[in-house]
Amino acid sequence: MSDIVPRALDRELKRGAAELMILSLLNAQPRHGYDLSKLIEARSGGRLRFHIDSLYPLLYRLEERGWIKGMWVEKPDERRRRIYKLTPTGKRVLADQRRTWDAFVDAVRQVTGGANA
């Protein structure tokens, strides 16, 4: 599989894949933006990378929808950071989306995997 170029990913973002990734990551634990971008890059083996000007507008959109909530957290010896966590609504949406996504991936795999099998 070739690298997914960011420009293409950006288009994907609008379709919800990115949303799903972020909601999933935040479901495990609250994180700040940089943390999220690093995690996505690491977990995708460097193939997925968010531009800063894609990531944050997305976070803000999710926040406006009430799925996540950002808050400034101050820890001793650390800079003030804005940490995002999933709201109850967000959790429900995530569950929904996962189901939809799983179904979608299954469907795609059935189409494409059938050829391989």
Binding site: H51, D53, Y56, Y60, R61, E64
Partner: peptide, 18 residues
């Protein structure tokens, strides 16, 4: 390079309520 372009941020912020 973290920025995609000079205008992308504004463009993506534009649809937001805030």
């Amino acid at each position: 390079n973290e920025f995609e372009s000079g205008t992308a941020l504004a463009a993506r912020m534009a649809p937001l309520r805030q």
